[in-house]
Amino acid sequence: MQEAQDISSVRREIVRAENVRKTFTLSRKQRAIEKSKTGKKVALDGLSFTAYEGEIYGLLGPNGAGKTTMLRILATLIRPDEGDARIAGHSVLKEPDAVRSSIGFLTSELKLEDFFTPAYLFGFFGKLHGMSDEFLAKRKDELFTKFGIDRFAEVKVGDLSTGMKQKVSIAVSIIHDPAVIIFDEPTNGLDVLTAKVVTDFLAEMKEQGKSIIVSTHIFSLVEKLCDRVGVIIDGRMAAEGTLPEVAGDRSLEDAFFDIYKRTVTGV
């Protein structure tokens, strides 16, 4: 493990978030739920982290910690109030188009139109990514086989099962073979078999030299998959490093409770 750390220190930074702040203005309904007096919710409170090329980085945190918010900023869907993030050298604020070309982004809020078939959507998104017909055919072949989509290629997305929908979403999100893959809770709502297809796929992508960021609140997923992990609590980075650095010799779960207690009580 000492070795791995040495390598990581000379590795190139691929994703770097610096002091990212994001405050949401709450609607009246949300205000009642959040019991907020000010009508503002600080989702990210100066969050910084670094992920290196070729590793799987896990953003770990409880519900509402700000994981999805951070990833949406990386995907340029929303803009940070303060701070900036760079992906493969491109700033999400200044070069959002270049950032979008270099990432494959997946989150549950991104839906595919029920009306279309996976085959049609592949062609559509491939063209939006500026892919040649040849490259597109090759990717379609690869990904449809890998995820078992071939049999459903001509079935409307609306008629697919949750698992198959998720597989199509994953395939569409990485259709352009991006260098950086950003997945938000990729195994949420999936049965163990489908979840394994997804985690195996992420491991395979890492083998191919891709850089990967996943967010999750599932400890076992981090333990199995991630090279480094950042623990987010209340929009702040509570601990960051390789698994041994963060967990020591305890399980990640125990370590997390300690970190959580320390952060929340401020001791």
């Binding site: 188009d97 809020e109 839906k111 939006l128 500026g130």
Partner: peptide, 17 residues
């Protein structure tokens, strides 16, 4: 409708302007 169903967000993460 595309906003409501979340399909426009999928378009917005592609490099399209």
């Amino acid at each position: 409708g595309e906003k409501e169903r979340g399909t426009i967000a999928t378009l917005l993460v592609t490099p399209i302007k």
